[in-house]
Design a protein around this nucleic acid. Structure first.
Lengths: 204, 204
DNA sequence: GGTTATCGATACCGTCAGTATCGTATTAAG
DNA sequence: CTTAATACGATACTGACGGTATCGATAACC
């Protein structure tokens, strides 16, 4: 699966025999999967429903992805991933705050259900767990860490920060609320979370 | 389910007609469920396997719990819950640290898989989500908050603390790592997490 | 003894992920 | 134009599993 997630690099114009695959069929299927799963949740959507929504036979779907989880993961990476950019600002802390606000809105939208579904499914699907961690979580953590480094360089945070821990402390509570439903994920929450975080990371 | 989770209060010696239920059958089934699910995970264990492991017919099981999720949740509450006490210490911060260490060990043991399984299942099972939140998460959060209050009273933490947020900041990162697998959950992690938390909550 | 509810066992049902197959369509090669 | 190879939508099928129904036997109370 791991090499299949995120459309294989087109095998270099290699002209294969037989009828070629539909041009935008991949995207149509991904969009159908994204739409259904983000509104109803992974377990409440069947593969047949995704195929029907895309106006496609089930085999067309399984010819392109090895299983349901890989398809939905791909939908997230291809359709949603590129739209989750890190807002740039001169002050790194402003970038960080914007990023946290965006994350809060993201989790509060239908995409929150999508993320929850994938994390849930990943608990019993090792391949999905690896893909989600390496292709979704880690790149975004890296972005956060870069921002934190920049904030340190700008003298807004103390030096000698454990960046992994800091990232856990900023995002852990968001995922915690997303998955446990113990509280709302709104701007006020993020604001207080960040303020408290900064309180513990003042520069000397 | 919610009124069924955690053995109904025995209907007051009420002598019902017909053959009475087995004495310790409940416990035997719960222990089988706990053993299997905590080692293999919820999705990798079938109801038939639990029944076989308990040496019991499947119907005996469904006569006592409405479904698989309720059974496993009950196993957690009945067999594990009572063994997760809050360590007492004169210094509240020592209690807090001990509690976090215990939680880290708990998550690192087979019970970590059990908790992950239930949270995953709860993403598509509203009743389970409510039960898990109200009967497992919330009581333990309340214990943490009491400890934090005590620490404030002892002058170890500043006043005017957002206790809900503080609990999220302490436990969010632990659940985050448990569910995402982004890092180990060991004593070093907990120690640095708590140290960083305290850094942001010094008394005036 | 009659009533009632439990027991283990087993057959059964419905759902769903994933596979196989069929007739058709579309491309490149010859 | 024919042939080979692949994709297509549709549909039937398989296997696994959660949950239900049923059966003959058992154990309590009246």
């Amino acid at each position: 699966m791991s090499q299949k997630i995120v459309k294989k690099i087109e095998t270099a114009g290699k002209t294969r025999p037989g009828r070629p695959r539909g041009e935008d069929t991949d995207r149509v299927i991904l969009e159908a999967a994204l739409r259904l799963v983000s509104t109803r949740g992974f377990r409440n959507v069947t593969v047949d429903q995704i195929a029907a929504e895309a106006g496609v036979g089930k085999m067309t779907l399984y010819r392109r992805w090895p299983n349901k989880a890989a398809l939905v993961m791909d939908a997230l990476l291809v359709l949603v991933g590129p739209r989750t950019q890190f807002p740039e600002a001169e002050r790194a802390l402003d970038s960080l705050e914007s990023q946290l606000f965006l994350q809060a809105r993201f989790f509060s939208s239908d995409y929150g259900r999508l993320i929850r579904s994938l994390i849930a499914e990943a608990q019993s699907d090792m391949e999905l767990a690896v893909a989600f961690r390496e292709r979704w979580i880690e790149p975004r953590r890296e972005g956060v860490i870069q921002t934190l480094r920049k904030a340190v360089a700008q003298g807004e945070l103390r030096t000698k920060i454990d960046f992994q821990l800091a990232t856990d402390m900023l995002y852990g509570p968001l995922y915690y609320r997303l998955l446990l439903g113990t509280g709302t994920i709104d701007r006020a929450f993020v604001r207080r979370l960040l303020a408290q975080f900064l309180e513990g990371h003042r520069p000397a």
